[in-house]
Design a protein around this nucleic acid. Sequence first.
DNA 1: GAATATCTGGAACGAACGTTCCTCAATTGA
DNA 2: TCAATTGAGGAACGTTCGTTCCAGATATTC
Lengths: 198, 198
Amino acid sequence: MAARGRPKSFDKETALEQAMLAFWDRGFEATGVDDLASTMGISTSSLYATFGGKEDLFLAALDHYQGDRGRYTKSAMENGSTALDCFRNLFEVSAIELTRTDQPRGCMLALALPTCSPEMEPLRMKMNERRGVSLRRFVERLRRAVKEGEIDSSCDTTSLALFFLTTIQGMSIQARTGASREKLIEVGKLAMRAWPET
Amino acid sequence: MAARGRPKSFDKETALEQAMLAFWDRGFEATGVDDLASTMGISTSSLYATFGGKEDLFLAALDHYQGDRGRYTKSAMENGSTALDCFRNLFEVSAIELTRTDQPRGCMLALALPTCSPEMEPLRMKMNERRGVSLRRFVERLRRAVKEGEIDSSCDTTSLALFFLTTIQGMSIQARTGASREKLIEVGKLAMRAWPET
DNA sequence: GAATATCTGGAACGAACGTTCCTCAATTGA
DNA sequence: TCAATTGAGGAACGTTCGTTCCAGATATTC
């Protein structure tokens, strides 16, 4: 069942993890292909043969991020008996995840490509689409809460979801600026004051 | 009183304005010196003679931004009979300014250099310091409100100020992603729910 | 008008960019 | 054992990067 030809001398997932960390830390534009290759422990030719080009690698790294480090928002929406619990947990977990010392601070989706040259605009748009996934999950959870009677039906769920997402994105900037975990937990608690009265 | 030698053929302020718009739109890393020069309507030699290098020009553009387009946060803190009025106004004005169609969306300080290569880290730190100015102004205004009895002294003014700044920074990301002015106004209203009860 | 001073556009610099190519190494199937 | 196949490292591609240099143009001062 082994593949024909010379086998890969590196693990694709491990290399992708390293690429993700580089893009996450320095952003898309500031991370060079040579930097990536040396960080990943492979040559540029192997990089191109395995992942395509820089843009493809970036998108693959983004997928890797969303499927691993970025899952905490999804998890928060799924765990918790009430929507209130879910979002309270969302903010606490976000504050913790965004300030971890064993990885770049802040969210890769929020920080890696906020601005770019016109040629890279299509790539930036793809990031925007990916950010939308979180928003939709927030809306769905809030709508479910309305349906179950936890939240009054007068609540503007889309605006509330957007507010929560906006706050978390702001927390990414703050985490990168150097705000402490404790400060961000306080910020999260204040955001929860927007929760509709029962 | 005229200067010796050949006079400048361009207005320095106008050129700086154009440089600011370019950096604001595309970010520091993605904006090239040749792009800048042609946008400013001058040659690279004039650019270097007048502004120094790319980093110096960026900092000058940042100063220009803060003294002009970025003044709305300062104005909001100074105008308003109560702190509540000030911050309500801050969010409304922010939502409007961040989504103007005659200039790049979002705040230049929040978007132009969130991530960078290690060599540019000192420059990024300078941006962090500049962001701190807004935070200090928010804190001062809230403290004044406590002193004047508008807000109860049990209020954690630094956390509340950080929360407001965080929300506005998140609004910058949202504005760049494409969120409408109306949506951001709603987000601002929800942020104001964190205002301490009287 | 001559001397001095400053600003101009354009050419040129070495370095780094993303990408491709080529040769050699390592493995499988016959 | 040997052709076929795939991955390896590294040199090299043309382009763009930020920056410097230079000859010429335009002003003031004497």
